[in-house]
Design a binder for these strands. Structure first.
Lengths: 194, 194
DNA sequence: CAAATACAGACGACCGGTCATATATTTAAT
DNA sequence: ATTAAATATATGACCGGTCGTCTGTATTTG
C-alpha cells in the first residue's frame, strides 16, 4: 500500500468516526482534516468533494465488514442460528464502544437519502447486500434444520435486518443495551424450530 | 387559538416538513421561514433557538399522533392484533405520501443524539411512550386471546417498535413499500396464536 | 401614549471549495 | 555523482456565500 493510499485510508478512518457521530451536515471538511491531522488543502487531492468522501467512507466501512462477515457467515462448523446471532452482535460497530457511534449507514440513510441521490443509491445497495447475506443463512438453516416460520427467507431477512437497524438507532437515543437485548431475545422466536 | 399561536403552529408544521426530509443540519432557519412564508426576523419571537424549534416540533408531531392513536389503541371494538397492525400502518407518516419524508423522530435520533442532549432526551422519551402503548396492546391481547410468544410484552414491544422504525428508515433509502410489506407479513408470526 | 410584539437587515463565524505558491520528486545533461 | 531544469504534489490563505443569532426600528395593541 503506497504512502498516498495509507494517508487516504487514514483520512477515511478518522473522518468516518466524526461523521458517524455528528452526521454529514454536522461534520465540516475542517473537522475531518483536523481529526486526521492533515492540512485542509490536501483533502481535495484525495476526494473530489465532501459527497465523494462520504461515498468512499460508506464503501470502506462495508468492505471491511463484508470481509470480516464472510468468514463468519460461511463457517459451516457453527450452526446457522448461532452464525446469525453472532453476525448481529459483531456488527453493532460504533455503538459497542461507548454507545455513541451508531450505524454510519443508518445515519447516512436517514440524513442524506433525500439530499443526495448518489448517497441514497450507495446506501440502498449496501443494505441490499447485507439483507442478501442474511437471507442466505436463513435459507441454509431452513434446508438443514427447518425454520419455525414458513415465510419466504427473503421476507424474513428483510424484516430482521431492518429490525436490527432500528435497534441500533434506538440504542443511540437510549444509550443502553436494552434494545439490543430485546432484539437478541426475540430473534430465536422467529428463527429456531420449537 | 390566538393569531400568534396559529402562526407558530404554521411555522412548526411547515418547518417540520422540511426538517423531516433534509435533516436538522440540512435545514436552515431561512428554509423554515421560507416554507412558512414568514419573515426571518420573526422566527426568534416564537422560538429561542433552532434547537428549541426542533424540540417543539418533536413534541407537536407526537402529540398529534398520540391523540390520533389513543382512539385507535383503546378501541375495544377492534381486536388487539388488528389495532396494532393499523397503528403501524397509520403511523408511517411522511413516508406514505411520496416515500420521501421518513420518520422525523428517527431522523432526529440518528442525526442529533450526539450533538444535542436535549433533543436526545426528548427523542428517548417519545420512543418510550410509543413502546409503552404497544406493550399495553400486547398485554391486552395476551390476556384476551393469548399470545404466540411467551416472552414478556415489554421485550416484544421494544423489539417490534424498533423493527418498525428500522422499516421506516429502510423505506427512505429504497423508496418502495417492500420493507413495510415485509414488516406487516412477519408481524402476525410473532403476534397471533396459531 | 406606553408597552409589547413583529420585522428587516446586519453581524461575526464558518461553510465547501479554489488557487497561487512552496516544497518535493523526477528527469536529463554534464 | 552532481546539478539544474522540469514536473508533480502539498498547503494554508482566501473566495463568495450562507449560517444562527441579534439589534434597532416599525407596527400593533391595550
Amino acid at each position: 500500500m503506497s504512502k498516498r493510499e495509507l494517508k487516504k485510508d487514514h483520512l477515511l478512518d478518522a473522518g468516518l468516526k466524526v461523521m458517524a457521530t455528528r452526521g454529514y451536515n454536522g461534520t465540516s471538511i475542517q473537522d475531518i482534516v483536523n481529526a486526521a491531522d492533515v492540512p485542509k488543502g490536501s483533502f481535495y487531492t484525495y476526494f473530489k468533494s465532501k459527497e465523494d468522501f462520504a461515498i468512499e467512507a460508506l464503501e470502506k466501512v462495508t468492505e471491511e465488514r463484508m470481509v470480516q462477515n464472510r468468514h463468519l457467515l460461511n463457517d459451516r462448523s457453527i450452526c446457522p442460528q448461532e452464525r446469525l446471532t453472532r453476525f448481529f452482535v459483531d456488527n453493532i460497530g460504533g455503538c459497542e464502544e461507548n454507545l455513541n457511534g451508531g450505524c454510519f449507514i443508518g445515519n447516512m440513510c436517514q440524513e442524506m437519502s433525500e439530499s443526495s441521490e448518489a448517497i441514497r443509491i450507495k446506501v440502498r445497495q449496501m443494505l441490499r447486500n447485507s439483507t442478501q447475506a442474511i437471507e442466505d443463512v436463513l435459507e441454509e438453516a431452513r434446508l438443514k434444520d427447518g425454520l419455525k416460520s414458513q415465510l419466504p427467507s427473503a421476507v424474513l431477512a428483510e424484516f430482521l435486518f431492518n429490525a436490527w437497524e432500528g435497534t441500533l438507532m434506538r440504542m443511540k437515543a437510549s444509550k443502553c443495551r436494552e434494545p439490543l437485548n430485546a432484539f437478541l431475545t426475540v430473534l430465536p422466536e422467529l428463527f429456531s424450530k420449537p
